[in-house]
Nucleic acid binder design. Structure first.
Length: 155
DNA sequence: GCCAACGTTGGC
DNA sequence: GCCAACGTTGGC
């Protein structure tokens, strides 16, 4: 399936890394607790879209691989888990507040495309990830940016 | 560990 | 609805 749109999701590798995704093959990308990121997960992503995996709070930080978006959005099950961080008292089974998507492992880059390298690439100057103050954990990536980073990974 | 930047909460 | 206080993210 040809990817229609391109995305990037952040994860702290000490919590869940690209290697965890490779081991699992597929995972539910849940625990996103920002409304803008939620809308991208729920309404923006479509099956077959390509998604970078980005390691944050890590050594090194950067883009480490690619996943594929699977299926439709599902209510994030962690919002119903009373007594946990993810619990969302406003959520009901009929009206979920937070949403998640299944992501399937596609590949891991031979080397992390580091944040500093992204910042040094003039073609990526407008990339949302690099915008001042950006903290989104799920965000769109332009097609040309996606291909540019894939090329950087091969270099 | 520090801290800049941003998001959320809650008093009014 | 405003906005100060607080919490979180995430690079360094």
């Amino acid at each position: 399936m040809m990817a229609e749109k391109y995305w990037l999701v952040k994860t702290e590798p000490s919590v869940y890394s690209i290697d965890d995704l490779r081991r699992d093959g597929e995972t539910l990308w849940d625990r996103v607790r920002n409304h803008q990121a939620k809308l991208f997960l729920r309404d923006g992503m479509q099956p077959g879209d390509a998604c970078f995996i980005y390691h944050s709070n890590a050594h090194p930080t950067g883009v480490v691989g690619v996943a594929v978006v699977m299926g439709v959005a599902v209510a994030d099950p962690t919002q119903f888990e009373k007594g946990t961080d993810g619990f969302e008292p406003r959520a009901t089974r009929e009206a979920a507040v937070w949403w998640a998507r299944r992501l399937k492992w596609k590949g891991r880059f031979a080397a992390c495309v580091e944040l500093a390298a992204l910042r040094n690439e003039p073609k990526l100057a407008g990339m949302r990830l690099l915008a001042r103050g950006n903290r989104l954990s799920v965000m769109p990536v332009e097609k040309f940016e996606f291909h540019c980073i894939e090329q950087m990974a091969k270099a």
